[in-house]
């Protein structure tokens, strides 16, 4: 039974959930949470791609037989670290803004939406 297809469906769903959160939320901490979820989705996708049925992790300590594709793993690691850097900046911007304006609500900070 190949588990790749359910993993892909999960990845796409999680990605969609992350985008949904980005659209509906106004609180900056919650926006950061949605960002983090959206970034994880691509990692899930990468790991699902690398999966080989009946294989093992790409560490050559005496194993034989098929190994998972190591390239997506390397890409996923890079993407995780970059995502962490982004989130750290987003959180520090949130803190800086809260200190200045006393709110973490983007809508209150943003003059461009004249209707509210």
């Amino acid at each position: 039974m190949n588990p790749q297809i359910p993993v892909f469906i999960t990845a796409a769903l999680v990605w969609a959930i992350g985008i949904y959160g980005l659209i509906i939320h106004r609180n900056m901490i919650q926006i950061c949470v949605s960002l983090s979820i959206m970034e994880s989705a691509v990692i899930i996708l990468l790991v699902g791609l690398a999966f080989v049925p009946g294989g093992s992790a790409p560490i050559l300590d005496g194993h034989t037989g098929p190994f998972a594709d190591p390239v997506p793993h390397a890409l996923a690691l890079t993407a995780i670290v970059i995502g962490a850097g982004f989130l750290a900046i987003a959180l520090s911007l949130t803190v800086a803004m809260y200190r200045k304006y006393g709110t973490a609500d983007v809508k209150k900070l943003f003059p461009w939406d004249e209707t509210q």
Binding site: P3, I43, A50, F51, A57, P58, F67, H73, L77, I80
Partner: peptide, 10 residues
């Protein structure tokens, strides 16, 4: 899913 390195990082 055979990605121990990524699992550790995550």
């Amino acid at each position: 899913l055979q990605a121990v390195d990524v699992a550790m990082a995550e």
